[in-house]
Design a protein around this nucleic acid. Structure first.
Lengths: 212, 212
DNA sequence: CTCCATATTGACCCGCGGGTCAATAGTAAG
DNA sequence: CTTACTATTGACCCGCGGGTCAATATGGAG
């Protein structure tokens, strides 16, 4: 970046196409660290290597920028969900470990931070909660529910509410992700997500109790 | 309240003892609705039936008020945790349904809102995350872990990491609570916590799969 | 009833940060 | 090179809300 011989006043650049994604990337960092309320657009601009005014050229308000961040991360993981959906006709003893392993992977990405943001701001941004629900949570829950229903029809799974079974399956992964997100600075003993995924897959399928 | 014949200027009252709890109660409402950043102390004062200045008499800063709110709700549920601890030497097939039913109850109280606040603000208030961890999450997880270890020693529970088993047990309840908290305005199909508790207790103990 | 200690008030202060816009400087076409 | 177009800038504006404090109302003591 800096190569002129003497303290060159930082040169401008015109890159209409590259700006939005750079700004969104910087905004993601800042929102993730500070939360919506405490995030300063000036800091977003600085990290994006841009003046504050430029941010407002591409995103009229702070809310708009926040929406862009959430939808950006969302869309980057939609394919993962779609991929999982294509596997949903497998027998449950294969599908469940696959899904949980996917969740463990997502837990290492930027998803947890966005998850935290959505949980925090769902009241202020009901439209975002809506989208997140329809595009991710609802889809995952829906495909799981369907797979469970089919397995029940084949007599492979005990009777019971398939929707609630979906919570039994995915819940511990969510708990693990949130636990890490909330306590990563507080505790050294954070749950290992891949191990949790593997063990919970066995547990939820076969139960805690030892066979008689 | 208003009984004088003509628009009486709202009478003052001096009630040093009653103020703090009234203010904390009002603050809880406002923080729960708006989140920390968007909560206005003027609104807290109004709901507490008090002038803005009075709030600052009892709580020097907004942060202090927030801490008071979190610790207030926390302490009101510590007894519940202590009660659960006294049951922890029961056999697991009794303990697990009990614990999950407790969690379902907590899910109907003000706990979910505080949970949301803690998740949202853990970065800004690491001390709060610490306290919440040490006083609630850690204790519940700890007693569960111990109970599982004992059950494993008796050969009642399959081998495996007891800490991760604790996530398998409690995770779905956390997921259910958060799902309700985040999507209660978005979706009509919210999970029923008592039903989830009952079904998940069976599931985690015996497994999803039908016996051969 | 008077007086004093103090709980309460609300007008005020002021820094922060979202949002604006006239000036500036890349860039590309001619 | 010149010109025209526009992406970019950053100084500026200003409302909001956290925090202050001198004035005031209250209620108990004597």
């Amino acid at each position: 970046m800096q190569n002129r011989t003497q303290v060159p006043p930082p040169r401008r650049q015109r890159r209409k196409e590259a700006r939005p994604s750079e700004i969104v990337a910087a905004a993601f960092e800042v929102f993730a660290e500070r939360g919506f309320g405490a995030a300063k657009l000036e800091e977003v601009a600085r990290r994006a290597g841009v003046a504050k005014g430029t941010v407002f050229v591409y995103f009229p308000t702070k809310q708009d920028l926040f929406r862009a961040v959430a939808q950006n991360v969302l869309s980057s993981h939609l394919e993962r969900v779609a991929g999982a959906a294509s596997e949903s006709d497998r027998p449950l003893p294969e599908l469940v470990p696959l899904l949980l392993a996917q969740a463990a992977k997502a837990g290492e990405s930027r998803v947890p931070a966005v998850l935290r943001l959505i949980i925090a701001e769902a009241r202020a941004f009901p439209d975002l909660a809506q989208i997140w629900h329809d595009e991710v949570v609802g889809k995952v829950l829906g495909l799981l529910t369907q797979a469970i229903k089919r397995a029940q029809a084949r007599g492979e799974v005990r009777p019971g509410d398939p929707k609630l079974y979906a919570f039994s399956i995915m819940g511990p992964m969510l708990a693990g992700v949130i636990f890490r997100e909330v306590f990563h600075a507080t505790t050294t003993a954070l749950p290992d997500l891949p191990k949790l995924a593997a063990q919970h897959a066995r547990t939820v399928l076969q139960g805690l109790l030892a066979p008689l």
